[in-house]
Design a binder for these strands. Structure first.
Lengths: 110, 110
DNA sequence: AGTAAAGTTTACTGATTGGTAAGGCGTTGA
DNA sequence: TCAACGCCTTACCAATCAGTAAACTTTACT
């Protein structure tokens, strides 16, 4: 049974894609070049493919601005893609989410 | 070190593993045979490998009961593995989590 | 026009990995 | 002790996938 769009978890499985999401969460809006600059070991087309995957999963959306694409996190798509699954397992992670948010700095981030 | 998890998202990327989690969320405790019975197209050792992956990610834990292994969801491990990431993106999915829980099963037009 | 910049698409390749089959290990019961 | 059971491990194969390079598209600049 297909959930919303692509397989979100498969898309999230890649560290580079998660890092892209991190950058978008930090900066709200980034161009492809700006994102690509954060990955010196990767070639631009690779980033593009990752962005396509994130877009297909509904996690980000892009708007043209001249010849640049402005990427940002798609809040609605994010919730649509992850919400049902998160709701199903809410009992398992919500009970310690508060605790985790407080000590979110001490363990090494993802 | 008792690592706080393999790459959780990579583990969650597989539909079979997510289905196993679903079954454990439903039944609380299941043996390997019971789980394997839900996957007629898969061979038992395949299920075992999936369970190992879920265990390495900290999402499930197993206890021996005679010669059978009783698997269940590891609530703490679940929260440890997903909590930080969820906290980081809470703003994006929490705002519509309530709405989504109500229409969690409604079809999604493309 | 001509050219460069910003991204995307395509074709290809090496590394992961999900799957199977076979064998191993510990446990139960005859 | 021996055999069957329940599960895990290993070795291997086919499919997937992340990465690259090169060609292509669209917009901007001169």
């Amino acid at each position: 049974m297909p959930d919303a769009g692509e397989d979100v978890f498969r898309v999230l499985a890649d560290p580079t894609r998660r890092r892209i999401l991190d950058l978008l969460a930090e900066h709200e809006v980034r161009t492809v070049s700006e994102l690509a600059a954060e990955f010196p070991d990767l070639v631009a087309s690779g980033i593009s493919k990752h962005l396509m995957a994130l877009r297909a999963a509904g996690l980000v959306r892009a708007t043209r601005e001249g010849r640049t694409q402005l990427y940002r996190i798609d809040g609605d798509g994010f919730a649509r893609a992850l919400g049902p699954w998160l709701a199903k397992y809410e009992a398992y992670w919500s009970r310690s989410l508060d605790t985790l948010r407080t000590l979110a700095e001490s363990p090494k981030p993802d």
